[in-house]
Amino acid sequence: MARNSEPADSSTRATEAGTGTMAGNEPHPDTDETPERDGVSFGWEGVRSGFLTGIPIAIGVGGYGIAFGVLANQAGLTVAEAALMSATVLAGASQIIAVELWADPIPIAAIVATTFAVNLRYSLMGAALQPWFRHLSPRQIYASLVMMADENWALTMRELRSGSGRGAFLLGSGIALWLFWVGSTVLGVLAGESVGAPEQYGFDFILTAVFVALAVELWDGTSTLVPWLVALGTSIAAANVLPGRWYILIGGLAAAAVEVMRHGD
């Protein structure tokens, strides 16, 4: 009954479903279930929520930013140069590898190619957002993707799978990461060598912990078992024979390929 007096809500639902039959029989009277992949919106509320959720993680990532700053300082980069790299690249592992490759003269091709290879995994992570991001405009999508790093991708997958529909969560959590990443880079360069290793405080474990937590949530019973075992085996094998982070791409693609082959059977 109450449905009829709230045309604003139910009419949009009905047109989306493309049916008028819902008016007669109410299949879901008052279930407050959020549809998992529908109604993804992009707004300040999502930015804010992502930002606040991202802050504790960003503080942990700051431990790495300091380490990166120290390494950049050792490689001979100035504060401005290191900060510029953190602000525009925003991809921790590739930046740390880049400053380790840094020399005089700068091996430009090696650095740029390695950066691309190390970051190619983000293509896979971004593609995994498609079920939710297809509801957003290109500008919203690409602005969000530029702010994507491992940690906030993991947080965002968790958020969107919960059905909150906060399409701006990746952007908001990315902004939190960006602020702490750039800030801690500057601190690291200025502090030079006087800072201890991130291992000392367990900061190096934060990324692992975020992904373990996400794996617990992504576990979906036995249907996940085969692709996960494929990813496990191939990534460990690839990590043993290939440099950099190719193993992430290979593990993810192998699991998807096996699933594609299994699908028809």
Partner: peptide
């Protein structure tokens, strides 16, 4: 899930 496992396992 596969990407998460591929990050974690190694």
């Amino acid at each position: 899930g596969a990407v998460v496992i591929a990050v974690l396992a190694p």
